[in-house]
Design a protein around this nucleic acid. Structure first.
Lengths: 100, 100
DNA sequence: AATGTATATCGGAATTTCCCGATATACCTA
DNA sequence: TAGGTATATCGGGAAATTCCGATATACATT
Protein backbone atom coordinates (compact mmCIF):
# COMPACT_ATOMS: atom_id res chain seq x y z
CA UNK A 1 0.00 0.00 0.00
CA UNK A 2 1.96 2.97 -1.31
CA UNK A 3 0.57 5.99 0.48
CA UNK A 4 1.87 8.57 -1.97
CA UNK A 5 0.45 6.64 -4.92
CA UNK A 6 -2.95 6.46 -3.23
CA UNK A 7 -3.06 10.16 -2.43
CA UNK A 8 -1.96 11.03 -5.98
CA UNK A 9 -4.80 8.91 -7.31
CA UNK A 10 -7.19 10.90 -5.13
CA UNK A 11 -5.71 14.27 -6.18
CA UNK A 12 -8.03 14.78 -9.12
CA UNK A 13 -11.59 16.01 -9.21
CA UNK A 14 -12.76 13.63 -11.94
CA UNK A 15 -11.27 10.59 -10.23
CA UNK A 16 -12.92 11.55 -6.94
CA UNK A 17 -16.19 11.86 -8.83
CA UNK A 18 -15.79 8.43 -10.37
CA UNK A 19 -15.18 6.91 -6.95
CA UNK A 20 -18.26 8.64 -5.58
CA UNK A 21 -20.37 7.44 -8.50
CA UNK A 22 -19.15 3.86 -8.07
CA UNK A 23 -20.31 4.00 -4.47
CA UNK A 24 -23.94 4.18 -5.58
CA UNK A 25 -24.02 2.86 -9.14
CA UNK A 26 -27.77 2.25 -9.06
CA UNK A 27 -28.24 5.99 -8.62
CA UNK A 28 -25.61 7.28 -11.03
CA UNK A 29 -25.79 4.62 -13.73
CA UNK A 30 -29.46 3.65 -13.92
CA UNK A 31 -29.08 2.67 -17.58
CA UNK A 32 -26.95 -0.34 -16.84
CA UNK A 33 -29.18 -1.99 -14.25
CA UNK A 34 -31.44 -3.94 -16.61
CA UNK A 35 -28.49 -5.36 -18.53
CA UNK A 36 -26.06 -6.72 -15.97
CA UNK A 37 -26.75 -5.38 -12.52
CA UNK A 38 -23.86 -3.99 -10.50
CA UNK A 39 -22.16 -6.98 -8.87
CA UNK A 40 -19.07 -6.41 -11.00
CA UNK A 41 -19.34 -2.63 -11.05
CA UNK A 42 -19.82 -0.31 -14.00
CA UNK A 43 -18.34 -0.57 -17.48
CA UNK A 44 -15.87 1.98 -18.83
CA UNK A 45 -18.22 3.41 -21.42
CA UNK A 46 -20.85 4.36 -18.86
CA UNK A 47 -18.27 6.04 -16.69
CA UNK A 48 -16.76 7.82 -19.65
CA UNK A 49 -20.12 9.24 -20.73
CA UNK A 50 -20.81 10.57 -17.28
CA UNK A 51 -17.32 12.01 -16.82
CA UNK A 52 -17.41 13.88 -20.12
CA UNK A 53 -13.76 13.19 -20.90
CA UNK A 54 -12.38 11.08 -23.72
CA UNK A 55 -12.40 7.30 -23.65
CA UNK A 56 -8.61 7.11 -23.41
CA UNK A 57 -8.46 9.47 -20.46
CA UNK A 58 -11.12 7.64 -18.50
CA UNK A 59 -9.56 4.27 -19.26
CA UNK A 60 -6.22 5.55 -17.95
CA UNK A 61 -7.83 7.06 -14.86
CA UNK A 62 -9.46 3.74 -14.05
CA UNK A 63 -6.16 1.89 -14.56
CA UNK A 64 -4.50 4.42 -12.25
CA UNK A 65 -7.14 3.95 -9.57
CA UNK A 66 -6.68 0.21 -9.89
CA UNK A 67 -2.89 0.43 -9.52
CA UNK A 68 -3.50 2.41 -6.32
CA UNK A 69 -5.73 -0.43 -5.14
CA UNK A 70 -8.86 1.70 -4.88
CA UNK A 71 -10.90 -0.16 -7.51
CA UNK A 72 -11.03 -3.66 -8.97
CA UNK A 73 -12.00 -4.76 -12.45
CA UNK A 74 -13.66 -7.74 -14.10
CA UNK A 75 -13.55 -8.43 -17.81
CA UNK A 76 -16.74 -9.89 -19.27
CA UNK A 77 -16.85 -10.24 -23.01
CA UNK A 78 -15.85 -6.91 -24.50
CA UNK A 79 -16.69 -5.02 -21.33
CA UNK A 80 -14.51 -4.23 -18.36
CA UNK A 81 -16.45 -3.53 -15.20
CA UNK A 82 -14.91 -1.47 -12.43
CA UNK A 83 -16.05 -1.46 -8.82
CA UNK A 84 -14.73 0.07 -5.61
CA UNK A 85 -12.45 -1.88 -3.33
CA UNK A 86 -14.14 -0.87 -0.09
CA UNK A 87 -11.50 -2.59 2.04
CA UNK A 88 -8.91 -0.17 0.68
CA UNK A 89 -10.97 2.82 1.86
CA UNK A 90 -11.43 1.34 5.32
CA UNK A 91 -7.69 0.78 5.49
CA UNK A 92 -6.95 4.28 4.25
CA UNK A 93 -9.32 5.83 6.74
CA UNK A 94 -7.51 4.09 9.59
CA UNK A 95 -4.11 4.78 8.15
CA UNK A 96 -4.78 8.50 8.20
CA UNK A 97 -5.29 8.37 11.95
CA UNK A 98 -2.46 5.98 12.74
CA UNK A 99 0.35 6.67 10.30
CA UNK A 100 -0.10 10.00 8.55
CA UNK B 1 -12.25 21.75 3.06
CA UNK B 2 -11.08 21.24 -0.52
CA UNK B 3 -10.60 17.51 -0.92
CA UNK B 4 -8.34 17.71 -3.97
CA UNK B 5 -6.11 20.28 -2.29
CA UNK B 6 -5.78 18.05 0.77
CA UNK B 7 -4.91 14.95 -1.22
CA UNK B 8 -2.39 16.92 -3.28
CA UNK B 9 -0.76 18.08 -0.08
CA UNK B 10 -0.47 14.46 0.99
CA UNK B 11 0.91 13.32 -2.38
CA UNK B 12 4.55 13.83 -1.48
CA UNK B 13 6.90 11.65 0.53
CA UNK B 14 8.65 14.50 2.30
CA UNK B 15 5.42 16.16 3.33
CA UNK B 16 4.06 12.88 4.68
CA UNK B 17 7.30 12.51 6.65
CA UNK B 18 6.95 15.99 8.10
CA UNK B 19 3.40 15.23 9.23
CA UNK B 20 4.56 12.00 10.84
CA UNK B 21 7.41 13.80 12.61
CA UNK B 22 5.07 16.48 13.93
CA UNK B 23 2.92 13.76 15.44
CA UNK B 24 5.67 12.91 17.92
CA UNK B 25 7.94 15.93 18.07
CA UNK B 26 9.54 14.86 21.34
CA UNK B 27 10.90 11.81 19.56
CA UNK B 28 11.93 13.37 16.27
CA UNK B 29 13.07 16.80 17.46
CA UNK B 30 14.69 16.18 20.85
CA UNK B 31 16.96 19.20 20.42
CA UNK B 32 14.11 21.67 20.71
CA UNK B 33 12.60 20.39 23.96
CA UNK B 34 14.81 22.31 26.42
CA UNK B 35 14.25 25.60 24.60
CA UNK B 36 10.53 25.94 24.06
CA UNK B 37 8.71 22.66 24.47
CA UNK B 38 6.25 21.60 21.80
CA UNK B 39 2.98 23.35 22.62
CA UNK B 40 3.29 25.44 19.46
CA UNK B 41 4.95 22.74 17.38
CA UNK B 42 8.37 22.71 15.78
CA UNK B 43 10.20 25.56 14.09
CA UNK B 44 10.99 25.56 10.38
CA UNK B 45 14.74 25.24 10.82
CA UNK B 46 14.46 21.99 12.79
CA UNK B 47 12.13 20.50 10.22
CA UNK B 48 14.36 21.65 7.39
CA UNK B 49 17.42 20.01 8.91
CA UNK B 50 15.63 16.73 9.31
CA UNK B 51 14.08 16.81 5.85
CA UNK B 52 17.40 17.46 4.16
CA UNK B 53 15.89 19.84 1.60
CA UNK B 54 16.57 23.54 1.23
CA UNK B 55 15.04 26.13 3.53
CA UNK B 56 12.89 27.58 0.78
CA UNK B 57 11.47 24.21 -0.19
CA UNK B 58 10.58 23.27 3.37
CA UNK B 59 9.06 26.68 4.03
CA UNK B 60 6.87 26.28 0.95
CA UNK B 61 5.88 22.75 1.88
CA UNK B 62 4.76 23.94 5.30
CA UNK B 63 2.80 26.81 3.78
CA UNK B 64 1.16 24.32 1.43
CA UNK B 65 0.23 21.99 4.28
CA UNK B 66 -1.21 24.97 6.11
CA UNK B 67 -3.31 26.06 3.13
CA UNK B 68 -4.69 22.52 3.04
CA UNK B 69 -5.58 22.92 6.72
CA UNK B 70 -3.40 20.07 7.90
CA UNK B 71 -1.06 22.17 10.07
CA UNK B 72 -1.24 25.42 11.98
CA UNK B 73 1.50 27.91 12.72
CA UNK B 74 2.46 30.32 15.48
CA UNK B 75 4.99 33.08 15.07
CA UNK B 76 7.16 33.77 18.14
CA UNK B 77 9.96 36.23 17.66
CA UNK B 78 11.92 35.19 14.60
CA UNK B 79 10.63 31.66 14.73
CA UNK B 80 7.55 30.14 13.15
CA UNK B 81 6.35 26.98 14.86
CA UNK B 82 4.25 24.47 12.98
CA UNK B 83 2.02 21.85 14.56
CA UNK B 84 -0.52 19.37 13.26
CA UNK B 85 -4.20 20.22 13.12
CA UNK B 86 -5.47 16.91 14.48
CA UNK B 87 -9.09 17.85 13.89
CA UNK B 88 -8.39 17.98 10.16
CA UNK B 89 -7.11 14.41 10.18
CA UNK B 90 -10.12 13.16 12.11
CA UNK B 91 -12.35 14.90 9.59
CA UNK B 92 -10.40 13.49 6.67
CA UNK B 93 -10.53 9.98 8.07
CA UNK B 94 -14.31 10.18 8.29
CA UNK B 95 -14.63 11.90 4.94
CA UNK B 96 -12.88 9.00 3.22
CA UNK B 97 -15.57 6.64 4.44
CA UNK B 98 -18.53 8.92 3.86
CA UNK B 99 -17.79 11.02 0.79
CA UNK B 100 -14.93 9.59 -1.23
C1' DA C 1 -12.34 -13.68 -42.78
C1' DA C 2 -14.37 -9.09 -42.32
C1' DT C 3 -16.70 -5.73 -39.73
C1' DG C 4 -18.28 -3.50 -35.53
C1' DT C 5 -17.91 -2.40 -30.66
C1' DA C 6 -15.40 -1.87 -26.08
C1' DT C 7 -11.24 -1.02 -23.99
C1' DA C 8 -6.15 -0.26 -23.67
C1' DT C 9 -2.01 1.85 -25.04
C1' DC C 10 0.92 5.33 -27.40
C1' DG C 11 2.79 10.03 -28.46
C1' DG C 12 2.51 14.57 -27.30
C1' DA C 13 1.13 19.65 -26.06
C1' DA C 14 -0.13 22.26 -22.08
C1' DT C 15 -0.08 22.68 -17.28
C1' DT C 16 1.44 21.64 -12.69
C1' DT C 17 4.69 20.01 -9.27
C1' DC C 18 9.27 19.51 -7.36
C1' DC C 19 13.04 21.58 -5.64
C1' DC C 20 16.65 24.77 -6.09
C1' DG C 21 19.43 29.42 -5.52
C1' DA C 22 18.77 34.23 -4.91
C1' DT C 23 16.53 37.72 -2.69
C1' DA C 24 13.14 39.99 0.40
C1' DT C 25 11.06 40.51 4.85
C1' DA C 26 10.71 40.16 9.90
C1' DC C 27 12.63 40.34 14.16
C1' DC C 28 16.35 40.58 17.53
C1' DT C 29 20.60 42.47 19.54
C1' DA C 30 24.51 45.42 19.99
C1' DT D 1 21.29 52.28 13.03
C1' DA D 2 23.83 48.20 11.54
C1' DG D 3 24.39 43.40 11.41
C1' DG D 4 22.80 38.71 12.32
C1' DT D 5 19.40 35.03 12.27
C1' DA D 6 14.86 32.84 10.88
C1' DT D 7 11.48 32.59 7.58
C1' DA D 8 8.98 33.83 3.27
C1' DT D 9 8.79 34.79 -1.51
C1' DC D 10 10.48 34.95 -6.32
C1' DG D 11 12.17 33.03 -10.77
C1' DG D 12 13.15 29.05 -13.08
C1' DG D 13 14.85 24.27 -14.93
C1' DA D 14 13.55 19.50 -14.71
C1' DA D 15 10.19 16.11 -14.04
C1' DA D 16 5.43 14.62 -13.49
C1' DT D 17 0.50 15.09 -14.47
C1' DT D 18 -3.52 16.18 -17.32
C1' DC D 19 -5.98 15.21 -21.13
C1' DC D 20 -6.23 14.66 -25.96
C1' DG D 21 -6.31 12.20 -30.78
C1' DA D 22 -4.60 8.25 -33.07
C1' DT D 23 -3.83 3.60 -32.98
C1' DA D 24 -3.70 -1.17 -31.14
C1' DT D 25 -5.92 -5.04 -29.01
C1' DA D 26 -9.77 -8.03 -27.57
C1' DC D 27 -14.00 -9.94 -28.27
C1' DA D 28 -18.52 -10.69 -30.78
C1' DT D 29 -21.24 -11.17 -34.95
C1' DT D 30 -22.04 -12.09 -39.60
Amino acid sequence: MDQVEIFKALSNKTRLQILAWLKEPEIYFPGQLEHTGFEDGVCVGQIQQKAGLTQSTVSEYLALLQRAGLVQSTRKGQWTYYRRNEAAFEQLSKLILSEV
